[in-house]
Amino acid sequence: MKIVVDAVKCQNHGQCAISAPANFELDADGKLQYRELFDEGNFSDIEDAIDACPLQAISLNDDAHA
């Protein structure tokens, strides 16, 4: 499973970085950086980040061929 962020929707609010700092962060310019892959132990944090995004720009892609 991979994290997918819709760059068109994302406005760098950073709520995901608060919810799941192991996978999301704002860089020095305030732009979102994220890691597509994550440990199963962080799944709850990733779900929280998805829920926290005010623009619903984050999703999970479970296509094994993606």
Score class of each variant (00 low, 15 high):
G41S: 09
A28S: 11
A7D: 13
F43E: 07
D29T: 12
L37C: 04
A28T: 11
D6T: 10
I3Y: 04
I50Y: 03
G14F: 03
E47K: 15
I3V: 12
P21D: 03
K31D: 06
A17C: 11
G30N: 06
M1K: 15
L55D: 13
S19Y: 02
E40N: 03
F43W: 12
I18R: 13
V8T: 14
V8D: 14
L32S: 00
V5L: 09
A57R: 09
L32W: 03
S44N: 12
D39H: 11
A28C: 06
E25M: 07
A57M: 11
P54K: 13
C53K: 01
V8N: 14
F24E: 00
A20H: 01
V5F: 12
K2T: 10
A20N: 02
D48C: 11
Q11D: 13
I58H: 04
Q15T: 07
N12I: 06
D63A: 15
D51K: 15
M1L: 14
A7N: 10
A66I: 09
H65N: 15
G30C: 08
K9W: 09
E40V: 02
C10E: 09
S59F: 10
H13W: 10
R35V: 03
I18F: 08
P21C: 06
N61R: 09
S59N: 07
D39Y: 02
N23M: 01
A28R: 12
S44W: 08
S19Q: 06
E36K: 12
A7S: 14
E40C: 01
L60A: 03
D62C: 13
I58F: 02
P54Y: 08
E40S: 04
D29L: 11
N23F: 00
S19R: 09
Y34D: 02
A64W: 04
P21G: 07
Q11A: 12
P54I: 10
L32K: 07
N61A: 15
A28F: 01
A20G: 07
V5Q: 05
D63P: 12
D48I: 01
A7Q: 15
K2Y: 08
F38M: 07
C10G: 13
I18H: 12
G30R: 03
C10L: 05
D45E: 13
F24V: 02
F43H: 13
M1T: 13
C10Q: 07
D39S: 09
K31W: 02
I50S: 04
N23D: 00
A66V: 12
Q56G: 11
V5W: 09
D29C: 10
G41N: 06
S19W: 00
C10I: 11
A66P: 05
I3C: 05
S19N: 05
G41D: 05
I3G: 00
N61L: 05
D48V: 04
A17H: 05
S59H: 08
Q15M: 11
N42W: 02
F38R: 05
G30I: 06
D45M: 10
C16Q: 05
K9N: 04
V5E: 04
A66E: 14
A49V: 05
A7H: 09
D29R: 10
C16M: 06
L32R: 07
P21I: 05
L60K: 10
F24H: 00
G14E: 07
E25S: 10
L37D: 08
V8R: 14
F24T: 00
R35F: 01
D51C: 12
C10K: 05
I50H: 03
M1E: 06
L37Y: 02
Q33G: 05
C10V: 08
C16W: 00
L32P: 01
I46A: 00
Q15N: 14
A22H: 06
